[in-house]
Nucleic acid binder design. Structure first.
Length: 646
RNA sequence: GCCGAUGUAGCUCAGCGGUAGAGCACUUCCUUGGUAAGGAAGGGGUCGGGAGUUCAAUUCUCCCCAUCGGCUCCA
């Protein structure tokens, strides 16, 4: 008999060789029907795999991320099995589970898969799934494994196996399909009830662009058709919220081939929105002791040679701008930090002046690879809500806390309720590859973690993710559809102060090296507006909406009253426009709803007589009428409350 | 940059070896209205660009450009 310990620390006894599935059965039939995988003594384990010794066990169902991973990993095998049957002679790379489903990289040889093939593969997968094929785990020795895949002619698997240690190699077989795999897998294929292959893409073997490009097939599976349907609805919803679509519909921004790819143009309404965001942040930054600056869009090449960016990124950037003058070269600025370093250096700084906080909405230009461009989220020119804080080493923690406060205010005002942080620290095994003194790093890393704890910010630590020049803290928000986006960032930099030989005079009358902190609560205006658009589906908070109110006269007879109303509202800084079209009121309401204006004011005979407005809120029905004064007061109050949601 | 797909009116899209169509939007007229599409008429396209095949190319082929889905990269 062996002792099995459950997550609640209770212990039960079982025969040696019992499987997690057997254990589940002993608890309840229902659980047994749903167990997809398990963790045994900290190792991922098949539900059907025997346990030979005392163990701590955790059972996973579809509701656990681990259960989903097992399901999707098994689905990848199922898809490979289907593809192998449909298309002879294909070779397989790797096929893992991912956040939302799975993929398999396949060398299809002379065959080109198209979207149309995906439907056939889906059908085949469902056919195989219904056969209730068991996933059988087999231990193999390296020599046999190599021989098996060499005979099959699958050089990708051979390469993978040759890198594995003998004695650790396992196959999983389902039906006629055998794959190199460490598992775990679901008990059998019948759990896979609904299949959707989502897309086809090219992917380099092992992510190396010098190697062969394989065809990557993405898919997702579910234990119930209903869940697939729900997932497809979610995808539809995401499509509706696509910021590129909303950006056009709401007339916020545009792109133009003549201007150039990846170069967004902000339209009047988009600009109004962006300026409002900038003003909001500027005001907060003033409270937090920032000084606003403006620097040119280009900088001398030598600036970037000194900063080190030229060596690092110069070859993959926009080419230098030359002038009639021999040897004179400028670069479009890819970041604002070198300029700001010059501002710090411009006059002697005392320890009493620190920290110096220099802020700029700085537009930068980066030559992103053309295939990487995407709406407003990946562009070649964007404006960072940048600031650089030059401080003493003992001030790092306090500065982090202050920046975190700003980010919190911003996120709250924009209704991002869920956010968390990722702390990126050095690779503990290799301190060599980082610049800056070891003790400073240690101090800053500790400061960041303490700051998170003090602010009660949920954060997880990633080792080895720090930049070579310093540790950082990134903010991830979850939007209304539960998607995660990386927005704000705070980064410590030991590199630039060194390269630009920045210093301040300490109390000891000696020169000291300041610590530089880069930070951008929005990240970039472009990216932030994109995320905000998708988060609120274009229904901006009232304070931000480019147009807050639309006045809908019932007929042309009331146009005069509408115009007077508009100017009256303007006195209270309420942004209102009038639908002057010769259309019926029902039509005007419909169109105003589609344009997502927060408030509609219907005005006709009655309103004119009473100097009142009939109010309708976007997405709601008639709210009844109120006096024009009461309406203006209500809007002003609401805007104020939204902005002060701190 | 690489793989694949796409590119037809401002938008969403249909069509096709015989040089274009719908809906919405736009303009004008009629209607002057009360909480999600009133009616009529009209204007608008070198069918992404270039070359080739053909009696004839928006349609077929090739090359470019842009967009989309991925890969890679991200100071």
């Amino acid at each position: 008999m062996i002792n099995i310990t459950f997550p609640d620390q209770s212990v039960r006894q079982y025969e040696a060789g019992v499987s997690p599935l057997d254990i589940a059965k002993s608890i309840s039939e229902g659980l047994a029907r749903n167990v997809l995988a398990a963790k045994v003594n900290g190792k991922m384990w098949d539900a059907t795999r025997a346990i030979g010794e005392d163990a701590e066990i955790q059972l996973f169902t579809w509701d656990d991320p681990e259960g989903k991973a097992a399901m999707w990993h098994s689905s990848a095998h199922l898809m490979a099995a289907a593809i192998e049957q449909l298309y002879k002679g294909v070779k397989f790379g790797i096929g893992p589970a991912i956040d939302n489903g799975f993929y398999y990289d396949i060398d299809t040889g002379d065959i080109t898969l198209t979207e149309a093939d995906l439907v056939n593969i889906e059908k085949k997968m469902l056919e195989l799934a219904r056969q209730k094929q068991v996933f059988e785990r087999v231990d193999v020795c390296k020599a046999d494994a190599l021989k098996h895949f060499q005979d099959k002619g699958d050089e990708y698997k051979v390469e993978l196996i040759s890198e594995l240690e003998d004695g650790t190699i396992t196959y999983y077989k389902n039906g006629e399909f055998t794959d190199l795999c460490r598992g775990p897998h679901i008990p059998n294929t019948s759990f896979i009830k609904a299949v959707k292959l989502t897309s086809l893409a090219g992917a380099y073997w092992r992510g190396d662009e010098k190697r062969k490009q394989l065809t990557r097939v993405y898919g997702i599976t579910f234990p119930k058709q209903k869940e697939l349907d729900e997932y497809l609805v979610l995808l539809e919803e995401a499509k509706k919220r696509d910021h590129r679509k909303l950006g056009r519909e709401l007339e916020l921004f545009m792109f133009n081939d003549l201007v150039g790819k990846g170069l967004p143009i902000w339209l009047p309404k988009g600009t109004a929105l962006r300026l409002r965001l900038q003003d909001y942040l500027t005001k907060i930054q003033q409270e937090y002791g920032y000084e606003q600056v403006i620097t040119p869009h280009i900088g001398g090449k030598q600036l970037y040679v000194t900063s080190g960016h030229w060596d690092h990124y110069g070859a993959d950037s926009f080419r230098p701008i030359t002038t009639p003058e021999e040897g004179e070269e400028y670069l479009l600025k890819p970041m604002n930090c070198p300029h700001h370093c010059q501002i710090f250096k411009w006059k002697p700084r005392s320890y009493k002046d620190m920290p110096v906080r220099i802020a700029e909405f700085g537009t930068v230009y980066r030559y992103e690879q053309s295939g990487e461009l995407h709406g407003l989220t990946r562009v070649r020119s964007f404006t960072q809500d940048d600031a650089h804080i030059f401080c003493r080493p003992d001030q790092v923690k306090d500065e982090f806390i202050r920046v975190m406060e700003i980010i919190e205010i911003i996120f709250k005002a924009l209704d991002f309720k869920n956010f968390e942080a990722q702390i990126s620290l050095r690779d503990p095994n290799d301190h060599e590859k980082y610049v800056g003194a070891d003790e400073n790093w240690a101090k800053a890393e500790a400061a960041i973690q303490e700051a998170c704890i003090e602010k009660g910010l949920p954060a997880h630590v990633e080792y080895g993710e720090a930049a070579f020049y310093g540790p950082k803290l990134d903010f991830m928000v979850k939007d209304a559809l539960g998607r995660k986006w990386q927005l704000g960032t705070i980064q410590v930099d030991y590199n630039l102060p060194e390269r630009f030989d920045l210093s301040y005079i300490g109390a000891d009358n000696e020169k000291h090296r300041p610590v530089m902190v880069h930070r951008a609560p929005f990240g970039s205006m472009e990216r932030f507006v994109a995320v905000l658009l998708e988060h609120c589906a274009g229904e901006f908070p009232l304070w931000l909406a480019p147009d807050q109110v639309i006045i809908l006269p019932v007929s042309e007879k009331y146009m005069n009253f509408a115009q007077n109303l508009q100017s009256y509202l303007k006195k209270s800084d309420i942004r209102a426009l009038i639908d002057e079209r010769n259309e019926k009121i029902g039509r005007k309401i419909r169109d105003a709803e589609m344009k997502k204006y927060p408030y509609m004011l219907i005005v006709g005979e009655k309103e004119e007589a009473e100097n009142s407005v009939s109010v309708r809120r976007h997405g709601q029905v008639d709210l009844g009428s109120m006096s024009t004064e009461a309406f203006a007061e209500m809007i002003v109050k609401q805007v104020k409350e939204e902005q002060e949601k701190r």
